[in-house]
């Protein structure tokens, strides 16, 4: 039975996303895509911090209330995962650090004052959160959780798992650059995934070939401020409140997009030290340094996410 590639484009999580899958007919492909996209929408409705009735908004609105909010199993697992990233990155990966957005406005060329930074840092720290695996308490008014760097990647994995469960063996989900390859093209050839150049997001700096698994990138692709010739990227260090330096962008290949995403984010946060750390982690990767020079870990495009 000949299979054809069907592409579905949809908006979710503030991105234009693309699901490509091979099926024997359009009806079959559409049925799978509908279920997969529904699942992504459901995740967005639960974990978006922009939607007024999402679970995440409810948690954030409870900040300062010591009774906290009871959460379901999936949310608990996401919080546990985020906590693991916090512990494994020595506190650099921190889902409470989103409040820094309040003082860093990348649309205006203006830096925050030292006292603004100091005040905001008071509200940051996963170690200040009370989390007992079923109930979460944000003890200080103004604290906020942000699943950016977790939920979009997890949505790509969820979508891939659902497609696989429904019999799809060849396909790819691209959530605004966070990718999970369900399986290679039917002839066994890999998907060729273009990596944007951080200086010119319209051009492709290199291509990664992937047959299975996740690929995620983190970096200063768009938002940055330039003041007196110095560039301030939008990846902020939760400990200092200032943009990190050392790397422009990092892409990582891992069995799950979620793990690729957290690993690329942690590498960015570690800055210069992230280079050596990526070697220790052992996953295929590539990075652009401050002068946008590209370094590809030799087997990044050859090796699978294994």
């Amino acid at each position: 039975m000949a299979m054809r590639q069907y592409d579905f484009s949809f908006e979710a999580m503030a991105c234009v996303n693309e699901l490509s899958l091979y099926a024997s007919n359009k009806r079959q492909a559409t049925a799978v895509a509908k279920k997969a996209i529904d699942a992504i929408n459901k995740l967005e409705s639960r974990y978006s911090r922009y939607l007024p009735d999402s679970l995440l908004t409810r948690i954030n609105e409870s900040a300062g209330d010591t009774r906290g909010v009871a959460v379901d199993e999936e949310t608990a697992a996401l919080l546990n995962y985020s906590q693991t990233c916090f512990e494994q990155s020595d506190g650099m990966f921190d889902i409470t650090s989103g409040v820094l957005r309040r003082i860093w406005n990348f649309r205006e060329n203006k830096l925050p004052t030292d006292s603004e930074v100091a005040d905001t840092l008071q509200l940051i720290g996963w170690d200040k959160v009370i989390w007992d695996e079923s109930r979460i308490v944000l003890p200080l008014t103004g604290m906020e959780l942000d699943f950016g760097g977790v939920v979009k990647e997890y949505a790509a994995d969820t979508c891939a798992t659902l497609c696989r469960d429904m019999g799809v063996r060849h396909g790819l989900i691209n959530m605004g650059g966070d990718i999970h390859v369900i399986g290679p093209h039917p002839d066994g050839s890999p998907w060729k995934i273009g990596i944007q150049s951080p200086d010119d997001p319209g051009s492709i700096a290199t291509t990664v070939n992937l047959k299975h698994g996740g690929l995620a990138s983190s970096g200063d692709y768009q938002r940055s401020i330039v003041i007196d010739g110095k560039r301030y990227g939008h990846i902020l260090n939760p400990k200092t409140g200032w943009p990190v330096e050392g790397l422009r962008a990092v892409s990582v290949v891992a069995p799950q997009c979620l793990i690729a995403g957290s690993t690329s984010t942690i590498a960015m946060l570690k800055g210069e030290a992230g280079k050596r750390w990526l070697d220790e982690v052992g996953l295929p990767y590539l990075w652009f340094d401050e002068s946008s020079r590209l370094f590809i870990k030799d087997d990044c495009s050859m090796r699978e996410a294994s």
Binding site: A39, N80, Y81, T84, R164, P255, Q256, L258, I259, G282
Partner: peptide, 20 residues
């Protein structure tokens, strides 16, 4: 291959949308 990945994998597989 190392304890970082092992910890992340262990936390990730607890998620219902992740299948290994």
């Amino acid at each position: 291959t190392n304890s970082y990945l092992r910890h992340l994998m262990a936390a990730a597989v607890a998620l219902p949308g992740i299948s290994v």
